[in-house]
Design a protein around this nucleic acid. Structure first.
Length: 299
DNA sequence: CATTTACTGCTT
DNA sequence: AAGCAGTAA
């Protein structure tokens, strides 16, 4: 029993990384709607990174800079360096190395891309468990952590009417406290291990910002797919714990294409073959059925 | 020309 | 080693 809970895995993803690199290089870009674009001649260049201020205006990746300017007249455009007529990403690779150097102090990393890394925190969590006197985790050590599925919906609870005016930080904090108080004490408790993993990731992210100036988001769960999914739930500059108990409700309304590697043709073939839309509906099929259709790459 | 670039797994 | 399909940012 408890299959799938034996590891603590995190995914750290830099927020609009190329934009942050350009903002550090040119501080006047900080806290502004801005993008990074490559090549200038065709429609102002193609956008490959977008600040969150610019996203609020509807600016997206893959947009031409000239088109983005129509949506956001104050948009500032940083240019990717060019060498030999080609886009040269050296600056971002060097920034990436700096980030990875800091994160490597905390755990062994698996580089997923120039701005993303997976890490297995199981051993580091076990270390902390040993050197822990009580079985409680201080919520003060989880100041940017969200727990997916918490606070529990009032409908599942008794009575109280939904409070639609609650502030985001208020909700985050309430959910965190509610979840922490529901985490039982045992040293084999998977939820306690996730909490300790989140504390480690809080420290890692703070160190990355202190030493490089770059901010990131993170997901903490029991495997890479769930960690990646969790990371995307609260961005930017936040981290999300995804306990296994919160997965069924999350999957109920989660399009299959939101899962890593199912965003393309494979996901579309699943939707078509099985006539399902959301991840939750996949539980209606046995692993043998899934393998028959899609090979042994289903877990 | 008008996404582009990078990475992974598989095949040749 | 090199090319191709698939995937993602």
């Amino acid at each position: 029993m408890d299959y799938g809970k034996e590891r603590v895995v995190a995914l750290v993803d830099m927020d609009c990384f190329y934009v942050q690199v350009e903002q550090r290089l040119n501080p006047s870009l900080k806290n502004t709607p801005c993008v990074v674009a490559q090549y200038k001649t065709w429609k102002g260049g193609g956008i490959i990174a977008v600040s969150y201020e610019a996203r609020a205006h509807g600016v997206t990746r893959n947009m031409w800079a000239d088109d983005a300017k129509k949506l956001c007249p104050d948009l500032q455009v940083a240019r990717v360096r060019e060498s030999h007529g080609k886009a040269d990403l050296t600056h971002y690779r060097e920034a990436s190395v700096q980030v990875f150097e800091v994160m490597s102090r905390f755990a062994v990393l698996e580089r997923a891309s120039i701005d993303e890394a997976y890490m297995d925190l199981t051993a580091a969590v076990q270390q902390r468990l040993k050197s822990m006197t009580d079985q409680q985790v201080d919520p003060q050590l989880m100041k940017t952590s969200h727990v997916q599925g918490y606070p529990l919906s009032p409908l599942d609870q008794e009575g109280a009417a939904q409070d639609t005016t609650t502030d985001k930080e208020e909700r985050r904090s309430r959910g965190l406290l509610q979840w922490l108080s529901s985490v039982s004490g045992g040293s084999g408790c998977a939820e306690l291990q996730l909490a300790l993993g989140a504390v480690i990731v809080e420290e890692m992210r703070a160190a990355v910002e202190q030493h490089t100036g770059y901010r990131c988001s993170a997901g903490i769960s029991h495997n890479k797919v769930l960690a990646k999914l969790a990371c995307g739930l609260n961005k930017p500059n936040r981290q999300t714990l995804l306990p296994l108990g919160s997965v069924p409700e999350l999957f109920n309304s989660l399009p299959i294409g939101k899962i890593r590697n199912l965003g393309g043709k494979l996901g579309a073939s699943i939707t078509e073959t099985l006539e399902v839309e959301n991840m939750g509906e996949l539980t209606r099929f046995s692993q043998a059925q899934l393998e028959q259709h899609f090979g042994d790459k289903t877990g």
